[in-house]
């Protein structure tokens, strides 16, 4: 018997696909899959959210609310501000019939942050920093009415819903993947998804706010006050730092300001000044 090893041709056990081509295909596939996932999550949220009653939002929030009550516990001077803000919000809300079950609760927070935002359960949070940068009731009313618009359009729930579905999908994907790579990649996209309103939502809330203002004052003059003071503040560093959070939650402010300014029909109409007790310096 003859014992020998003939030469075996190369390349039988190794695929001929170029590793980079392989890599590119996988990346494209995963990106498309993720995109499809996020898009369907958005569509699902958009369809589902308007059907959920407000009581549902309040139920979700019930677990968090006691903590908030403690955090936003106020000194007597601040209670006066909170009371004023709540009353202004109520008067504005009367210009429109709010959806059933929506109870607007304005919460005043004594921090220098220049921001206001609407969140789940009909809550509107207003920081002292915002009050310090406004001088007319009209300007403040515009901000509150804008947040009311978000509440009426169910934007906080929509954003939470989207973020939850997307995050769940991402968690699912990175759970299956063996490396930490996937997590790193997806945590980035998750951050930008979380709790930010889209431009369309902002425009819609602006439109809603202008209608309320028109009903309440008979004109929309002064509606751009907040934007104007933001523009001047953004030019100095201290103001910029206070505004960071506002920039995060409200992109595209220049375009919005122009749109709002264009709708003001009577720019010389008399404006209502803010009472002095609202300011932290003029106390």
């Amino acid at each position: 018997m003859r014992y020998h090893n003939p030469k075996i041709p190369e390349g039988i056990n190794i695929s001929s696909t170029h590793p980079l081509a392989d890599f590119a295909w996988m990346l494209t596939g995963i990106a498309l899959g993720l995109l499809a996932l996020v898009v369907s999550a958005h569509l699902l949220a958009a369809w589902l959210v308007p059907q959920l009653p407000f009581q549902f939002e309040q139920k979700i929030l019930r677990t968090v609310e006691p903590v908030w009550e403690i955090q936003t516990k106020l000194a007597s001077a601040d209670e006066k501000k909170a009371d004023y803000l709540q009353k202004l919000a109520n008067r504005l809300a009367q210009q429109d019939t709010l959806p059933e079950g929506l109870v607007v609760k304005v919460r005043y927070i004594n921090t220098p942050k220049i921001n206001a935002f609407a969140t789940l359960g009909g809550n509107i949070l207003i920081h002292q920093g915002l009050l310090d940068n406004l001088h007319t009731e009209n300007g403040l009313a515009m901000v509150i009415a804008h947040e009311l618009g978000h509440l009426v359009h169910r934007d906080p729930l929509l954003a939470t819903g989207r973020a939850t579905v997307s995050l769940a999908a991402i968690a699912l994907i990175s759970g299956f993947s063996e490396t930490r790579v996937a997590e790193n990649l997806f945590s980035l996209s998750a951050q930008s998804l979380l709790l930010s309103f889209s431009r369309q939502q902002e425009r819609r809330a602006d439109q809603y706010a202008l209608n309320l203002l028109n009903g309440y004052y008979g004109h929309t003059a002064g509606a751009t006050e907040f934007f104007e003071s933001v523009e001047t503040l953004a030019d100095n560093t201290r103001g910029y730092n206070q505004l960071l959070e506002f920039f995060d939650t409200h992109p595209n402010r220049g375009a919005r300001m122009d749109t709002i300014a264009a709708t003001i029909s009577d720019p010389t109409a008399p404006l209502v000044p803010l009472p002095d007790f609202l300011s932290s310096t003029r106390r």
Binding site: F23, M26, G29, I30, F176, E178, V181, A182
Partner: peptide
Amino acid sequence: KISAGLRSLVGGRVNA
């Protein structure tokens, strides 16, 4: 490593 990580998302032959 990355290539195999991606592959584990889509499935199939791990060329790498």
